[in-house]
């Protein structure tokens, strides 16, 4: 631009001029925020609506006993979904190129098998716990290496690792049930105070711990920065790959922990851990609709976990075929992902 004339003298007063006040007040991009609010409020309304409907249709539904049961039954999926949430936060919420860990369910299966096998082989709970957590951590490390060192997108890297892990589980268990019974395991699966399962308390405690770290510490904030806008994180002096590695290690650890819970819940390791994948992915993706900024949060993931579990529980109480559950979950993924994707696209315009 080669304008020879000078601009009108700029002055800081300009910031307070009425004209600027009008354009300066952050006008939330209307389409986006309205739709975002609608999505969030709508999801909460659907959640509450479902609860209300079930409690009328099946009076037992809202009893303390049933709620406790649902919480207990959600523990394994909840822990896995929290691990996945951490990965999605650190990798960004783009469904294709962002953070995802498809190996989580298989990880849980293998960790459980390791635990049960160690108990079978006569080792104590301490070593079995270490074995399960170590297995999870190792799987997380393989994922992290494939993604940060080899540069494979998480979707493909963890898909490959999922298959490897599922294969290892078959090798270890010969595709059979490995029973395991110890005092520790029975204590974990017993009923606690108020007749609510111990697993329910485990889920709540684990959620509180994860939420504390992710939502309330600088580490958590940085994790979001890394996922949402890696360049900005880099410009702020953060080592992006280190955070991504950390997120996959954390998610691997969640897989190992969920493995321990599942051994306790099922009194051993069973096949078919892979079936957990769909509900866990639904839960972690659904969770973001419960947050103001439409981001994945630990609290949102807990709500989503409970929503999915209550839905399944309600179906059972109403004697609706459980074969429908999987379809409903798939439908939820479609709805949530298309809603958030559309909103993101709008936001980028």
């Amino acid at each position: 631009m080669l304008v020879d004339t000078s601009y009108p003298p700029p002055s800081l007063d300009g910031f307070n001029s009425p004209a600027h006040a009008a354009e300066g007040t952050p006008k939330p991009v209307h389409g986006r925020s309205l739709a975002a609010v609608a999505l969030r409020q709508g999801s909460l309304a659907v959640f509450i609506g479902v609860l209300v409907y079930f409690s009328f249709a099946a009076p037992f539904f809202l009893s303390i006993g049933n709620i406790g049961n649902v919480l207990g039954q959600s523990a394994i999926a909840g822990v896995l979904a929290i691990g996945l949430t951490v990965v999605i936060i650190a990798g960004g919420s783009n469904v294709v190129t962002g953070g995802i860990d498809l190996s989580l369910a298989a990880n849980m299966g293998l960790s459980a098998a390791v635990y049960a096998s160690l108990v079978q082989a006569g080792y104590g709970d301490g070593l079995a716990v270490a074995g399960a957590l170590g297995t999870g951590l190792l799987i997380g490390a393989v994922n992290a290496a494939a993604i940060t060192l080899a540069g494979i997108v998480p979707l493909l890297a963890t898909l490959a690792v999922m298959n490897i892990v599922a294969g290892l589980e078959l090798v270890l268990t010969q595709n059979t049930v490995v029973p395991a019974a110890t005092d520790f395991l029975s204590a974990l699966s017993a009923a606690g105070p108020f007749g609510i399962p111990v697993l329910a308390f485990v889920l709540l405690g684990f959620t509180a711990l994860a939420a504390g770290v992710v939502q309330y510490t600088p580490l958590g904030l940085r994790l979001y920065a890394v996922g949402e806008f890696p360049e900005a994180a880099r410009a702020a002096g953060l080592r992006v790959k280190l955070f991504i590695t950390g997120a996959f290690l954390a998610s691997g650890l969640c897989g190992g922990f969920a493995g321990i819970l599942s051994v306790s819940y099922l009194s051993g390791s069973t096949t078919g851990a892979g079936d957990m994948l769909l509900p866990v992915v639904v839960t972690a993706l659904l969770g973001s609709v419960f947050s103001r900024r439409l981001l994945p949060t630990i609290g949102g993931t807990l709500l989503a976990t409970l929503f999915v579990s209550f839905l399944i529980n309600g179906f059972q109480l109403l004697n609706i075929s459980s074969t429908l559950v999987s379809g409903v979950q798939g439908l939820l993924i479609l709805l949530v992902v298309s809603a958030t994707t559309l909103l993101q696209r709008k936001g980028n315009q």
């Binding site: 904030l221 940085r222 979001y224 949402e228 900005a232 994180a233 410009a235 702020a236």
Partner: peptide, 14 residues
Amino acid sequence: LLVPTFTVGEALFL
């Protein structure tokens, strides 16, 4: 280079 989903405070102090 600012994270779009951050509040102003979060972006400033990241």
